[in-house]
Amino acid sequence: MIVTEDLVKRYGKVTAVDGVSLDVREGDRYGLLGPNGSGKTTLVRMLLALAYATSGSITVLGKPVPRRAHEVLAEIGAMVEAPAAYPHLSGRSNLMLFDAAGPGGSRRTRRARVGEALERVGLGGIDRRPVKAYSLGMRQRLGLAAALLRSPRLLILDEPTNGLDPRGIREIRDLMTELNEAGTTVFLSSHLLAEVEQFCTRVGVMDRGRLVLQDQLSSLRAPTGLVSVTTPASEQVTSLLDGRVVSVSDGVVLVRHDDPAELNALLVSKDIPVTSFGPSLRTLEDVVLEATSSSSDRVDSS
């Protein structure tokens, strides 16, 4: 669905994207992660022919971009950065204009498609208020509605849940899951680890313009070799397993033990209550921190 080879984008002396070879397959739920300034948005803009590469190649839906972008845009739904809109018009009016200006939209079904898209993102009861009066979360929902107007084969989203509350994030995640199960490939760029971990099946990690990691999420979250014991009696477990406990946090005890069955039998024999028990897996946070540099946005006093 998306293939890039040695993709480079320079702005003067600054290299925003540096030799990225991306591979997004049909049916993927692909999450592109990386710290702020890592090149994620620049990469997304090049996929949509909103910015031109300095070197390298891009293929989307089997066709080269930007040379044949006009042939694939009708099959792509996209939202990049802050959703664009005429602030003095209502959300519904904006979508009507957006649909009229885009490729492949039927005038006969326009009103129905706009109404359906608004319903799907939770804006079915939208009134005539101008977009300038919308909250950030409403603007994000409107941007998603614009991306869904033509039942896209490929959905490309940059920070799709920005500004949404926890319930809104879950609703959008459920919607993306529904679309993916119906055949839409979803590619999303995000800095929210939890969002990607709960939705995506494949992950790419960018750092300083480079794609430093790309794999199935299940492969990245390999077992750590430790056993995770969730218990309300963590102090008792720590005392019993003196020297084998690696860490204790919020009732979760990580234990170094060669035989999980033997460990479980020991806990049962001591009448220690256990609410969950199993191998400890690497978190996506662990994976990203290991793959990226130690740079951050923080500024310390001298």
Rank of each mutant, 00 (worst) to 15 (best):
S55C: 07
P279T: 07
G56E: 11
A233T: 01
V246H: 11
S249C: 07
D215K: 11
S38M: 05
H257L: 04
R170Q: 13
D297T: 14
T15L: 05
D165Y: 09
A53I: 05
R129E: 06
N94E: 04
R10Q: 14
L188S: 06
M96G: 00
Q214I: 03
V205P: 06
D242F: 02
L281W: 01
D215R: 14
E71M: 02
T224W: 11
S38N: 05
L240A: 12
I169N: 03
S234I: 01
G163P: 03
T15I: 14
S90V: 09
G77S: 12
F199I: 02
G27P: 11
E290A: 15
A16F: 08
S90P: 09
L289N: 11
S294P: 00
L47S: 09
A194T: 13
L289H: 10
L226E: 13
V229Q: 03
M1T: 13
S135M: 08
G77C: 08
E290C: 02
L179A: 02
D207E: 10
L211I: 10
L118R: 11
I156W: 00
Q216D: 14
N94Q: 06
K9R: 15
V253L: 09
K9M: 12
M138V: 05
E26I: 01
T231N: 03
S276I: 01
L97Y: 12
L192E: 06
R141T: 01
L97A: 07
L266E: 14
M176L: 15
L157K: 01
E119H: 13
V186A: 04
V245T: 09
S302P: 14
G225A: 11
L220Q: 08
S301P: 01
D258H: 13
A53F: 07
R282S: 07
E178I: 03
M46S: 10
R67Q: 15
D174F: 00
S295P: 00
A117V: 07
G34E: 09
F277G: 03
R120M: 15
L48E: 08
R208C: 07
T109L: 12
D207Y: 06
G251F: 09
T231S: 14
V274C: 06
V131H: 10
G34F: 08
L179D: 00
S90L: 09
L22Y: 09
V287H: 04
S106T: 12
L32G: 04
G209D: 10
K270S: 12
V274M: 05
D165S: 09
L188W: 05
T201V: 03
E75V: 00
L267A: 04
L220V: 08
L73Y: 02
T185C: 06
T201I: 03
L175D: 01
G137R: 02
P64W: 00
L47V: 12
E81P: 09
R221F: 02
P87C: 11
L226P: 01
T275G: 00
P223M: 12
T109N: 10
V237I: 13
S302I: 11
H191N: 14
V255Q: 06
H88M: 11
L266V: 11
T41N: 09
A133F: 06
V227M: 06
